[in-house]
């Protein structure tokens, strides 16, 4: 469990990115922080592994105040996946995946063997192990990034818009893969995105953020859709544009679901 307790972050230039933020992130579930750019979602994520230190307030992981922990050690036990993969261009795929275990002192041979197994886990062919990151496609690089995030078998996995830079088809594939991995591994995933559809797809708990890290609404995707807390949320999830207001239209002997503009979105199963 990760707990934000009245966390505030003011940057040296005076910008208040996050203002007395409170949130409980449940264990073994995916929590998605979603909002447009400048809402402080990335700042919140980076405060969990102390890439950024809060100006005031505290963040607790399983009841332990992260402020009292050594940042380098803390980061080694929290997986981190970022946009554009952030892979080390001078290390082979296998060594990129084995980075954190080797930093933590796992013998190189064992770390590399484990990394090989992780390539299978994230759906990468083992023949890619000895290639350099730039020899891989964007989607493959992102998978390596996920494997690297999982390598130390962390309880917590932070994902900062990991699929923002890949094309829609690959993104859909990677999203499904993430759901599959989370189901299988039961990590506490904190995921940052600006894409509400991605948030609803992946999140057990979705946190909709407004400027300054103010929470507009927290809930399951269904709760948010059913009862948007305010106009901002309604507009953000697309409820005001008719995208989420579906009705049934009888076509022959089938019930077709259409949105408010009459665009068919699916067929109702009996």
């Amino acid at each position: 469990m990760i707990e934000f307790r009245s966390v505030t972050k003011q940057f040296p230039d005076g910008t208040v990115a996050v203002d007395s933020f409170d949130l409980v992130i449940p264990p073994r579930k995916t929590t998605v922080l979603v909002g447009s750019s400048g809402c402080g979602k990335t700042t919140l994520l980076r405060m969990i592994n102390r890439m950024i230190d809060p100006s005031s307030g505290s963040i607790l992981i399983d009841g332990e105040d992260t402020g009292s922990l050594e940042p380098v050690k803390l980061r080694r036990r929290i997986g981190y996946v970022m946009q554009n993969s952030g892979l080390m261009p001078h290390r082979k795929v296998i060594d990129n995946v084995a980075t954190v275990p080797i930093l933590s002192g796992v013998p190189k041979k064992k770390a590399r063997d484990d990394a090989m197994a992780l390539l299978d886990t994230v759906g990468l062919d083992r023949s890619l192990a000895l290639k350099y990151p730039r020899q891989l496609s964007g989607g493959q690089q992102q998978r390596v990034g996920v494997a690297r995030g999982l390598a130390a078998d962390p309880n917590i996995l932070l994902m900062d818009e990991p699929f923002g830079a890949v094309d829609p088809i690959v993104r859909a594939e990677l999203q499904q893969e993430t759901i599959r991995l989370q189901d299988g591994l039961g990590k506490t995933v904190v995921f940052v995105t600006h894409d509400i559809d991605e948030a609803f797809l992946l999140g057990h708990q979705v946190v909709i953020l407004q400027k300054g890290g103010h929470i507009a609404q927290v809930g399951t995707p269904a709760e948010i859709l059913a009862h948007p807390a305010n106009d901002f949320v309604a507009s953000f999830v697309g409820a005001d544009r008719g995208k989420r207001a579906l009705r049934i239209q009888r076509v022959g002997d089938r019930d077709v679901v259409v949105d408010e503009n009459g665009t068919p979105t699916g067929v109702l199963q009996p």
Binding site: N49, M51, V72, K73, L74, R75, R76, Y80, M82, N84, S85, G86, L87, M88, P89, T99, V100, L103, S104, R148
Partner: peptide
């Protein structure tokens, strides 16, 4: 980005 990733890895 790479430096940031390196720090995040620990």
């Amino acid at each position: 980005d790479v430096l940031q990733a390196a720090s995040a890895m620990g």
